[in-house]
Simulated scan of single mutants.
Amino acid sequence: MKKSAHGRYWPWPPGPGVLAGLGATGLVIAGVAGAFAYTGGLLSPGALTQTRIIDRFQAINGVHPGFRRNHAKGVCVTGTFASNGLGARLSRAAVFAPGSVPVIGRFAVGIGKPFLPDNGTEVRSLALSFRPAGGEEWRTGMNDIPVFPVKDAEGFYALMAASAADPGTGKPDPARMKDFLAAHPETARALALIRARPFSTGFANASYNGLDAFRFVDAAGRSTPVRWSMVALDPFVAQTPPPAGARDPNYLFDDLVARLDAGPLRYRFVVTVGQPGDPTGDATLPWPAGRQQVDAGTLTLDHVEAEGPGNCRDINYDPLVLPDGIAASDDPLLSARSAAYSVSFTRRAGEPKTPSEVQPPPARPAAADLPKTGGEP
């Protein structure tokens, strides 16, 4: 299994209490900031480097040796993607030819501390590495929100400053957040879209959106702007607040393990086709409703295991690891993510590894692997 030489995630959101004074807006930002941190950001050359950004995230969350700097709490899954061939009209990528390819994935929550309890306002994420024959690879990271809360790294850096705790009070200054939102109306609009749909009860019934735009390139060289989603076949159920103390601290992951024990998870891979004028460089803006959608196949996940050597723990889900037939758009977040992940992974790779908080029980043996009894033919 090939290992990455690049980095992963940034440690965001901040620790408990940092956003506590922001009311409903603060709760949304606490959840979605992790999604943006997952996709990173890099300030203008000379103003701030990815190294300094990661230093800032470590100052916010602390350093947890061996864990990624954001989406630190997660679990590995494996399965297959079965293409129905319909995506080949848009992209010559091998994964869209009819047939199946293996997939190595990771479910995670948008927190930068690996041992925090799960809660209902955490962004759920699904990262995937497609491994078609021939040595190519395609990696993507998706989140269960409709848009990003900021459009560029400068906006994200300003959001960090606005939501940082005041040293005197230990809480954010609401006036700073008000000023930030006034200066960034795109974030106010994005937060309204994010708040309009509640989080799901778990990983299995959430659908995951790529959020950034990309370009599919077909066999003739024609380029088409696209966005993609993994749409859950399990029915969506909205998260509701539980009674105080009623949930296990790892309830999201425990529920995922139980669901996979009952049978495979399946998602439809839906490609949304952009039209001229649709924004490809601003991830806070949704594309208009009614755009053509192509159901390109089915993702099936049938195995879950704790992070460890050689599995998803050591894969960098860099969004610019792309096969022939898929290309980056003009979204500035894509190159920023790639650069920041490299720094983050370098640090993580040289640290001692601590076992993950999420430890699924050993997988049950398949029927074919069970020992035969005397009455078995």
Rank of each mutant, 00 (worst) to 15 (best):
D166F: 04
V226N: 12
A47L: 12
I315M: 00
P198D: 14
D212M: 15
P361H: 12
G374Y: 15
A158P: 02
T284I: 09
A30L: 14
I315F: 00
A238S: 15
N209G: 11
D330Y: 14
R52M: 06
T284C: 11
D248F: 03
H184I: 02
L193A: 12
G66K: 08
R197W: 13
A262C: 08
Y251R: 02
K2H: 13
A164C: 00
F36N: 07
P225S: 11
H303Y: 01
L265E: 04
A296W: 03
R227N: 10
H64N: 11
P13D: 09
A328W: 10
G15P: 09
P286R: 00
R259D: 13
P276D: 12
R313K: 06
P13N: 09
F36Y: 06
G31E: 07
G308R: 00
H184G: 02
L211Y: 06
K151M: 09
A175N: 11
D144K: 03
L90D: 08
R347E: 15
I53T: 10
P98V: 05
D295Y: 05
S356K: 01
I145Y: 01
A296I: 06
H6T: 13
P146I: 06
P98M: 07
G74S: 12
A59C: 14
L211G: 11
P65R: 05
D218C: 12
S335C: 15
V217W: 08
D295Q: 06
T187D: 05
T346L: 15
G62T: 09
R222H: 14
F67S: 13
R259G: 12
N143L: 05
R56A: 15
F216N: 07
N70C: 08
R52S: 08
L233D: 14
E305L: 00
G310M: 00
A296C: 07
A328L: 12
I53E: 05
R176K: 07
G112I: 06
F203Q: 03
S338I: 14
I29A: 08
A182S: 14
D179A: 10
A59V: 14
P11R: 13
A93F: 03
K178L: 09
A339M: 14
P98F: 02
A262R: 13
R8C: 14
T140E: 15
E357M: 14
V273L: 14
G290H: 05
P371Y: 00
R68G: 14
Y317L: 14
L320W: 01
A72L: 08
A164W: 05
D369A: 02
Q239F: 15
L285T: 04
V63G: 10
Q275I: 15
P198T: 13
A340T: 11
L265M: 10
G374N: 15
G325F: 01
P167A: 08
R266V: 11
P14S: 13
E376F: 02
A30I: 11
L299Q: 03
G155F: 03
R92I: 05
D152P: 11
